[in-house]
Amino acid sequence: MEKIREKLNAVRAEADAANQRAENAEAELKKAKDELISKEQEIISLQNKIALLEAENLRIEKKVTDDKLLQEEVETNKSTTEALQRKVALLESELDNTEQSLRDTTEKLRQTDVKAEHFERKVQQLEAEKSDLEKQLENIEEELAKTKKELDDTLKSFEDM
């Protein structure tokens, strides 16, 4: 009986050990399930973070692309602006040259007008002198004609004598 008791105690000890092992296994299982749930929640959280980061990455890539396009446009505008500034400077230089040429031409025109007025006065003066000389010539021709007639009359009178 003692052996039975010993066996019974051994079986009880085995059963207690098995129960203890089962409780430990259940505790470990529960702990593993809790860890699994925690890990699954962490995975979901990380998946959400990944989705948010991917969306943020797409937004940033789009912004970078837009910024590159904007930079290219700025550089194009800058080169266009520089070209236009050079053209404006060239046109301003041409305008200055044209204005100087206009001033020179205006001055020459003014001088030409002054000379033309002077020559017109000279022409009028010469025409007046010509008119006076023509009158004097007519008077002299009349006197000559008179004198010639008198001479002819005198010669005729000498001949008649």
Score class of each variant (00 low, 15 high):
81 T>H: 01
19 N>M: 13
91 L>C: 09
7 K>M: 12
22 A>G: 07
85 Q>G: 03
120 E>I: 05
161 M>R: 12
121 R>C: 05
55 A>H: 03
157 S>K: 15
11 V>K: 05
136 Q>C: 08
57 N>Q: 10
100 Q>Y: 03
16 D>H: 04
155 L>C: 04
99 E>W: 02
87 K>N: 06
79 S>H: 10
104 D>Q: 06
155 L>V: 11
15 A>D: 10
7 K>L: 15
39 K>Y: 02
134 E>I: 11
71 Q>W: 14
76 T>L: 11
118 H>V: 00
87 K>E: 03
79 S>Y: 09
71 Q>L: 14
121 R>V: 06
63 K>R: 15
11 V>T: 12
89 A>N: 07
147 T>G: 13
31 K>L: 10
93 S>C: 04
127 E>C: 04
9 N>C: 10
160 D>A: 15
121 R>P: 00
42 E>S: 09
135 K>Q: 04
35 E>F: 02
128 A>Q: 07
156 K>Y: 02
82 E>G: 00
156 K>V: 11
44 I>M: 08
158 F>V: 15
145 A>W: 06
75 E>A: 15
19 N>G: 08
40 E>H: 12
60 I>H: 07
60 I>N: 06
76 T>G: 06
146 K>M: 12
42 E>P: 01
27 A>P: 00
112 T>I: 11
52 L>N: 13
90 L>I: 11
42 E>C: 04
122 K>N: 07
3 K>G: 01
114 V>G: 10
121 R>W: 02
153 D>M: 10
146 K>T: 15
106 T>P: 07
102 L>H: 05
110 R>Q: 10
84 L>K: 01
17 A>S: 12
94 E>D: 06
57 N>A: 05
75 E>H: 05
27 A>S: 06
32 A>N: 02
122 K>E: 03
91 L>R: 03
9 N>H: 10
52 L>I: 06
5 R>L: 14
81 T>E: 03
70 L>D: 01
94 E>N: 08
104 D>L: 05
60 I>Y: 08
44 I>H: 08
16 D>Y: 01
120 E>M: 06
110 R>I: 01
106 T>R: 00
71 Q>C: 13
141 E>V: 12
2 E>L: 13
